Amino acid sequence: MDIRTFIQIPNIAVWDAKKQGNTFIKIYGDKIIHILSYLDVHTDRLGIVKFTLEDMVSSCGLASRSGKGNSNNQFAYILDDLLSKDIITIISGDYKKSKNLVSCILKMPVGKSEWFPMFHDDYKKIIDDNLDRLILLNVYSYVAARLRRPTKDKEGKAVEDIVECMYVDYITFSDDLDITEATLNKYLVQLRKLGIIYYDSIGLIKKHDYSHEANNVYCLDKDMLPRALGNSSLYYKEEGFTILGKKTSKEMIAINGLASRIAQLKKDGKDTSKLEKKLATIEKNKKAKKKVIPENNIHEEVTPLPKMKYENKPDIFGMFV
C-alpha cells in the first residue's frame, strides 16, 4: 500500500474559525499558500530548503519580474516577514536576487494550531494545471482546512465515525478567499475534474413557502460524498425543510442569482433598491403560479444515517509561534 506524503498547512492560513479576519490570506494575499507549500516540497532529507526566487515565482504560473510592485518584490516582501518571524532561517544566499540559489530551514507555523494535510500528489496536479494555480491552491486549501475530521487516539486510529466533509454557503466560501462566486464555481469545477475535490447538493429545499438550493457538501474522498449528502438531507429535514430534489426552475436560478448579487452589492455599500424590487416581483410571480412539484420528484432517504455531528471549532493560536 502506497503512503501518501503531505505538507502540514495551518488552518489559519485560509480559515479563521473565530472570524477575526486574521487568516494568512487576508494578511499576505493569495501567494502565501503557494510559498509555504513550495518551501516544504523543496525541503531535502536533511531538512534544508534550496530554491531561487525566480523558480518560486514562475512555478505558480507568474512571470518572474523585478521592480517596484512586480511579482519578485511581492514574494520577497512575504519572505521578509517569514524571516522576521523565524518561519524561515537563511543559511546562505540572497532571495532578493532572483537567480541566486538560497538555502534555508523552514519551520512550518503549525505549533498548537489545527492543521490540514496537503498531499504532495494533489499539490503537483494543481501546480501543473493551466488555470490560476494560486486560486486552485487556495480553494483546495479552504476545503481541506474546514473538513470535519475524526478524533484519533495515541496510535493515530480514529475513535469515532465521522463523515469527513465541509458544509458552507457560496457567499462565505468566496468572501473568505476574496474571490467572486463565479470564480469560485469555475475553480471548483476544475478541481473536481482533477479528481481532488468532490461536491454536490441535495437540490431544492422548501420551508414556509420559500424554496432555495441547499448548500453544497464538499469532500476530498469520493467515497465520503454519498454519506455527506445523506447527512445534509437529515440536517435540513430536522430543521423543518422539505426536500424537493434536484430540479431547479428558471425562476429559482434567477432568484438565487439576484439574491447573491444583492448581498455582494450591499457588502460593497452600493444601492440595491432596484434589484430588490426586481427580486420581489419574481418571487411574487412565483408564488402566484403555485407550481406543484410531482411526488415522484421528492427526494427520499433510503438508508438511515446517524445524526450529523458538528465540527469543534479549533482555538486559533497567535499568528505565528
Rank of each mutant, 00 (worst) to 15 (best):
E54I: 10
K250V: 14
K186D: 04
L305N: 08
T242P: 04
S233T: 10
K193H: 12
Y95W: 09
E311P: 07
L188Y: 07
I197F: 02
L220N: 01
K206P: 05
G195Q: 01
I135T: 14
K284E: 04
K152G: 00
D122C: 09
S98T: 12
G269R: 01
I25V: 15
P226V: 01
I135V: 13
N296W: 10
H299V: 09
P304W: 06
G93E: 01
G240W: 07
L194V: 05
W15V: 13
D175N: 15
Y235W: 10
E276P: 06
D132A: 00
S273D: 07
Y236W: 14
M1A: 10
I88L: 00
Q264H: 14
S232H: 08
R261I: 04
K237N: 13
K154F: 15
F6T: 03
V49Y: 04
K31Y: 13
F6C: 09
L131H: 12
D128M: 11
D129P: 06
E239P: 07
L136Q: 03
I298V: 13
R149Y: 11
V110Y: 12
L39G: 08
K286V: 03
Q264G: 11
S71R: 08
S233L: 14
G111T: 10
Q74H: 10
K287D: 08
I253A: 05
N72I: 11
D81Y: 10
E276R: 06
L136A: 03
I127A: 01
D315I: 14
G69P: 05
Q190S: 10
T272V: 13
K237S: 11
L229Y: 07
H299L: 15
L275R: 01
E295I: 10
N312E: 15
L53P: 05
L137E: 04
I32S: 09
A254W: 08
K96D: 04
Q20I: 09
I35V: 04
V302I: 15
A288P: 10
S232I: 05
N215G: 08
T172S: 15
P10H: 02
G29T: 13
I179H: 05
T172V: 11
V217S: 00
L131G: 05
P306E: 00
K287C: 00
I282G: 03
F173R: 00
L275F: 08
L184R: 03
L225D: 01
I126M: 03
F317G: 14
Y199V: 01
E213V: 04
I91Q: 13
P10Q: 01
G67P: 13
E295M: 09
R192H: 09
Y210M: 02
N215I: 06
L147W: 06
I262K: 00
V159Y: 09
L279V: 05
R261M: 07
I127W: 07
K284R: 11
T272S: 04
